[in-house]
Write a protein that binds this DNA or RNA. Structure first.
Length: 330
DNA sequence: AAGGAATTCAACCGCCGCTCT
DNA sequence: AAGAGCGGCGGTTGAATTCCT
């Protein structure tokens, strides 16, 4: 018995930072032979690396469709929204941030966003304001409901991520994806009748976030303290009251950036001419198209603040999402 | 200017699930 | 059905860089 190939690999394989020469070899090989077969790649490409290392180097660094550099405010907000729904599922989150890798998002979260949220008085795990006196039991009851909602949203995003993966090789993946979603992606069965939904942490956090960012960008204003964060949350109406008082909401289309090729979404247009009470929020892309108005799923009104300012919040929220979805994803 | 602390991020590790034989 | 191979994922590490005193 000789040395097994795996132990031989362990002896010979190089580790650590990649050199320019190695990068060039890897790039040249992929250019010539395409992706896949990572195990064989190192020998064929003349690299003393394991296949896994090569794959990682490609997916996290060498791939041409990677955007590097500072995350925009929009991207930060998107990460927070998605993390609130999905938790540490970086690859699922990455499918919603064009040209960003899961590794990069994970690093950004761990080194910056998590700390910033903490400093703002928000628990980065639960996305709720950190424990404070006066936290009532209704909120803890709502936590279970939120978890339920998150599971549904999570399942949907997963399906979307799977599809995204499948459509990578299609020549025009964006249109293909839209078409596929509109025509063939199995829809989730409606969930069991949910109780009045709790406030999604993302909306709450985002508002705080926006406030804090404003102060970041306005030198004359001092940074908000965790106390001011809590003050904001306490300004919100109780969930139950909000939920019952606004059964149907629409956002005028003038506030929504229309998407081209909306015909690909006709299936959703038909389906989502209106929303039932307690309808689960689904893909924001459903909301795109040639609508005279856009119906907002009832589940999206968790944090509506009574009065016109509440409306503005929702419009801004959806505009943010739609803008990020409308921008080229692939 | 120096050196210690803190931060960043590329890369690694171990595990998991899927596919193929 | 079982096991090997492979790719993907999330957590973690540690070298490089930046910041602070």
């Amino acid at each position: 018995m000789g040395i097994s190939s795996t132990s031989l690999e362990k002896v010979q394989m190089k580790k650590g930072p990649w050199t320019r020469d190695e990068d060039q070899k890897l790039l040249a090989y992929i250019e010539r032979h395409g992706l896949g077969r990572w195990r064989d790649l190192p020998t064929k490409a003349g690299l003393q690396r394991c296949g896994k290392s090569c794959r990682l180097r490609w997916t996290n660094y060498l791939r041409p469709d990677i955007k590097r550099g500072k995350f925009s405010l929009q991207e930060e907000k998107r990460i927070i929204q998605l993390h609130a729904l999905l938790g540490n599922r970086w690859s699922a989150i990455a499918t919603h941030l064009p040209k960003r890798t899961d590794n990069e998002i994970k690093n950004y979260w761990n080194t910056r966003l998590k700390k910033r949220l903490s400093r703002m008085g928000i628990d980065p795990v639960t996305h709720k304001p950190k424990n404070r006196p006066g936290t009532n039991s209704a909120q803890s009851k709502n936590a279970a409901n939120l978890s339920h909602m998150a599971q549904w949203e999570s399942a949907r995003l997963e399906a979307e991520a799977r599809f995204l993966h499948q459509s990578k090789l299609v020549s025009n993946p964006y249109l293909f994806r839209l078409h596929h979603i509109a025509t063939s992606l199995p829809r989730l069965a409606p969930p069991p009748p949910p109780p009045p939904p709790p406030p999604p942490p993302c909306l709450d956090i985002l508002k705080v976030w926006q406030g804090t960012c404003k102060s970041f960008f306005t030198p004359t204003v001092t940074l908000e303290s965790p106390t001011s964060t809590l003050n904001f949350s306490s300004n919100m109406l109780p969930v139950e009251e909000t939920h019952q008082s606004i059964p149907n909401i629409f956002v005028p289309s003038t506030n929504i950036t229309p998407v081209e090729n909306s015909s690909a979404l006709c299936g959703y247009e038909k389906h989502h001419n209106s929303f039932e009470t307690n309808d689960i929020m689904e893909n924001p892309m459903q909301l795109m198209g040639n609508y005279n108005h856009i119906d907002l799923p009832i589940s999206a009104n968790y944090n509506i603040v009574a009065g016109p300012e509440g409306f503005e919040e929702i419009k801004d929220y959806w505009n943010d999402i739609l803008n990020s979805v409308n921008s080229p994803v692939f």
